[in-house]
């Protein structure tokens, strides 16, 4: 028996919009810790990890650990039928091959049930250890989205370099080249407008902009994004979900042969 009641149902809608273009099918795992997902894109160079902690739900009942395979496009279709202010409850029965999404309007005058078929998905679960990163950049998520969009009109890849001068996003294409440098800026009115650069050592890595642009679909989830860079590891682009958890995207860098 599974029953997860999320008062701020719009969060789940936003999560699906953030990941459905990157991943087609995925297993959602439900445990005492929370509702989580780990899945790779079809080419296995990017990975998304989602966690919605159990404490973030108004009601959280998960009698045993369960993994439920879902087609994210179908799930998104169903969640789009929920209003932005609706309370969403996810319900499942042991051994059932379906899951039910219940949408309640804030005034309780409209209640809808959407039943979705589950699917068997054979997926590998990777252990992602805590790591020391060469540099961690925390910046407004809308700014990061803007930079990725702007650069993708010039080139296909972005070089992200962190030095003591700041963080530089560079691209090059047939029509020319572009460089955008952000300096640390903590003297802003609101904390969500700050750019904070922690650098242990300089780092410069190249990534496909197509993936970066896909990650920025998570922008509505958080005003800030954290980009963790290390020359030995995939980049981590993290959007925190207020009081609930996170969506983290991992992307393998492009390496010069």
């Amino acid at each position: 028996m599974l029953e997860l009641r999320l008062v701020q149902g719009s969060l789940l809608k936003k999560v699906l919009e953030a990941i459905k273009d990157l991943v087609t099918d995925a297993n959602f795992d439900c445990s005492a810790t929370g509702f989580s997902l780990q899945a790779m894109d079809s080419s296995h160079v990017a990975l998304v990890a989602l966690l919605l902690r159990s404490e973030g739900f108004e009601h959280y009942r998960c009698d045993r650990n369960i993994s439920m395979g879902m087609n994210l496009n179908n799930m998104s279709k169903m969640l789009k039928c929920a209003g932005n202010d609706d309370i969403i409850t996810i319900k499942g029965d042991d051994g059932s091959d379906t899951i039910t999404f219940m949408f309640e309007s804030p005034t309780q005058d409209k209640i809808a049930d959407f039943e979705m078929k589950l699917m068997d998905i054979d997926s590998e679960h990777l252990g992602i250890p805590e790591a020391e990163y060469h540099a961690i950049v925390r910046m407004p998520s809308a700014e990061f989205s803007r930079i990725c969009k702007d650069l993708s009109s010039i080139g296909d890849t972005v070089v992200i370099s962190v030095t003591k001068e700041g963080v530089k996003f560079s691209t090059r294409g047939d029509i020319g080249a572009a460089n955008i440098v952000l300096r640390q800026n903590t003297t802003v009115d609101k904390p969500e407008e700050a750019t904070i650069i922690e650098m242990n050592e300089p780092v410069s890595l190249t990534f496909a902009l197509r993936y970066m642009n896909s990650f920025t679909k998570a922008t509505p989830l958080s005003s800030m994004v954290t980009i963790s860079l290390s020359s030995e590891l995939p980049v981590v682009v993290e959007y925190k979900i207020a009081e609930m958890g996170y969506v983290r995207f991992y992307l393998a860098p492009k390496i010069e042969e």
């Binding site: 790779m40 080419s43 296995h44 160079v45 990017a46 990975l47 590998e124 679960h125 990777l126 252990g127 992602i128 250890p129 890849t157 190249t206 496909a208 590891l233 995939p234 991992y250 393998a252 860098p253 492009k254 390496i255 010069e256 042969e257």
Partner: peptide
Amino acid sequence: PCLQRKISDYFEGD
């Protein structure tokens, strides 16, 4: 020419 490794080259299966 750029090489792009897979995520599973960096992280091990549970």
